[in-house]
């Protein structure tokens, strides 16, 4: 038996026009999408930096001082500035998406999107203040 593709008896063979690698530069919305998705790279890197900071802390005052000095180098300052911007973009787009992914009903009616997003912003501010409080009162 021979396999014939595209024959009248088989499924039609569709032609896919090859897409350019630069497809995400063709529309503003595509670009924003890729930018949003790539914020995860900074999330991953900052998680790893946190592990390394805890490790330096566990290795004693000298190792920790060395780690802190490295954070003062221009490269890290630049990276952290870009990274903070990416994290803010991640947080804002995340809270914007939450009402779509989380449907909350209260007393039979659906809680409006703005209320759910707003509560997340309030929560964001509260936990930020608590973290700052704990770190600054040391």
């Amino acid at each position: 038996m021979s396999v014939q593709t595209g024959s009248p008896s088989g499924p039609p063979e569709l032609y896919h026009r090859p897409m350019s690698f630069w497809w995400w530069l063709q529309k503003r919305a595509y670009f924003n999408f890729i930018l949003r998705e790539l914020t995860c790279v900074f999330v991953g890197v900052f998680a790893v930096i946190t592990i390394l900071q805890i490790r330096a802390l566990s290795q004693g005052p000298d190792a920790y001082a060395e780690f802190i000095n490295r954070l003062r180098t221009p490269g890290f300052i630049l990276f952290n500035t870009v990274g903070l911007a990416a994290l803010l973009f991640h947080a804002i787009t995340w809270f914007k998406a939450v009402p779509t992914t989380m449907i909350v009903r209260f007393g039979g009616t659906r809680v409006p999107d703005q209320v759910i997003a707003g509560l997340h912003y309030v929560g964001w501010m509260v936990v930020s203040v608590v973290v700052a409080w704990i770190l600054l009162l040391r």
């Binding site: 999330v43 900052f46 946190t50 994290l87 803010l88 991640h90 947080a91 809270f95 964001w124 700052a132």
Partner: peptide, 8 residues
Amino acid sequence: SALLFPIH
């Protein structure tokens, strides 16, 4: 990460 990473 949205709630905690920016302040850290």
